[in-house]
C-alpha cells in the first residue's frame, strides 16, 4: 500500500465500522452531563469540541466511536 494510502487508512476510518448504532454507546448530551459531574460548570456536552463522542457502557470509557469492537450489539430499532 502506498504511503498516502496508509496515512489515509490511519486517519480516516472506513464508514460503517463505528459505534453509533451500538446498544452500549451513549451520546445523548444530558445523559453524558449527568454521568460526568462538573462538566456543565465550565464546559458543556453540547459543545462542538465533544464531536460525536459518547460513553461506551461495555468498556466504561469515553470514546469517539470510530472503531467498532467485538462487543458491538445493534441497538433495538424504534
Amino acid at each position: 500500500m502506498s504511503l498516502l494510502g496508509r496515512i489515509r487508512d490511519a486517519l480516516l476510518p472506513r464508514s460503517g465500522e463505528g459505534c453509533a448504532s451500538c446498544l452500549h454507546f451513549c451520546t445523548e448530551a444530558g445523559w453524558i452531563e449527568a454521568h460526568l459531574p462538573g462538566l456543565s460548570s465550565l464546559s458543556s456536552a453540547h459543545a462542538s469540541v465533544r464531536g460525536e463522542d459518547g460513553l461506551c457502557l461495555s468498556h466504561n470509557r469515553l470514546i469517539n466511536g470510530r472503531r467498532r469492537c467485538a462487543n458491538y450489539e445493534a441497538a433495538h430499532k424504534a
Binding site: L36, G38, V49, R50, L62
Partner: peptide, 22 residues
C-alpha cells in the same frame, strides 16, 4: 474541561478519569 472531554474521547480514556480531570 472542553479539552479534557475532547481528548478523553479521542484517546478512549476510562469513564472515571474525565470527572477527576474536570
Amino acid at each position: 474541561v472542553s479539552a479534557a472531554i475532547a481528548v478523553a474521547g479521542a484517546v478512549g480514556a476510562k469513564k472515571e478519569d474525565t470527572p477527576i480531570t474536570i
